[in-house]
């Protein structure tokens, strides 16, 4: 495992695009997080609510998840590079098994997802400690676990996608289009069904923070307002993990059987 990770690290260590995209993510997360506190929402969550424990975990993961797609694009690039440059083929010729090549990439994705989650955690931790009592920090911290699953979800989808499409430019465009289409498709299909679509399930893991407030407001206006069906966080996490397993396995077997 150590050897496979070292090989993957050598591939990105001097790859400027990789560090650039990570850098952009690292900047965008705190900037956009700060940004939402400046928006004049009708519910007016105070800075203390946005930046303070325990609500900070929901807000930070919701904000950061916009940029998670950016990291998904990075994974598409990394996986496609190895196909496009035929270096994956060369890795095998040089002595790795097909399985090792794929597993190495997957290890790398898991580690990267963990690093991303850790970074996001640190940003929220700093804010939380400034705006609220650090003693409350462990409340609702499960959002971080959920964020890890979400990141892994985007990564595994990106991996699956890159393996199937193979061409970097086309993969990136289609990947982004699918993520954008998700929000559009909810309208005709309805959220009752749409929430089970793989990419929507994964994206819904970090819910809109004022979701409850929106529902309550609707009910105040109209007592007959039907509360939309929502599968709930636990169910959603489990379903996401199943999708992740699915994406990974399909990608794995496609790569394993293919002539390179």
């Amino acid at each position: 495992m150590k050897k496979l990770l070292q090989i993957e690290y050598l591939k990105v260590k001097n790859y400027r695009t990789f560090w650039l995209i990570l850098g952009i993510y690292a900047l965008l997360v705190p900037i956009s997080f700060f940004g939402i506190s400046q928006i004049d929402f009708p519910f007016l969550p105070s800075s203390n609510e946005i930046f303070g424990f325990p609500t900070v975990w929901n807000y930070i993961t919701w904000t950061a998840s916009w940029w998670n797609v950016l990291l998904g694009v990075l994974i598409v690039i990394l996986v496609c590079n190895d196909i496009e440059f035929k270096t994956q083929r060369q890795n095998i010729i040089d002595g790795l098994s097909r399985k090792q090549v794929i597993i190495g990439k997957l290890y790398f994705l898991v580690i990267l997802a963990a690093v991303i989650t850790l970074y996001t955690f640190l940003v929220a931790l700093v804010m939380g400690c400034i705006y609220s009592n650090p003693a409350d920090m462990f409340q609702e911290i499960e959002y971080l676990g959920i964020y890890f699953i979400q990141t892994l979800g985007y990564f595994s989808f990106a991996f699956f996608f890159a393996v199937l499409v193979r061409k970097p430019a086309l993969s990136i465009i289609l990947f982004v289009v699918i993520i954008i289409l998700d929000d559009i498709i909810k309208l005709p299909v309805g959220n009752d069904v749409a929430q089970f679509f793989p990419t929507i399930t994964i994206s819904d893991l970090t819910p809109f923070p004022f979701f409850k407030e929106v529902i309550e407001m609707s009910r105040e206006r109209d007592p007959n307002f039907e509360i939309p069906y929502d599968m709930g966080t636990v169910m959603r996490s489990i379903l996401s993990l199943l999708y992740i397993a699915g994406f990974t396995l399909i990608g794995f077997f496609a790569l394993k059987r293919r002539d390179l």
Binding site: K3, Q6, I7, L10, K11, K13, N14, Y15, R16, T17, N81, F85, K86, T87, R89, Q90, N91, I93, D94, G95, L96
Partner: peptide
């Protein structure tokens, strides 16, 4: 085998390090 396959954004030494790692 056929065309040389290396990472275009890496130097010769950096590319060979990957090969060396694979071949232990």
């Amino acid at each position: 085998l056929e065309t040389p396959n290396f990472y275009p954004y890496l130097t010769a030494v950096q590319n060979l390090r990957i090969v060396a790692k694979i071949k232990e």
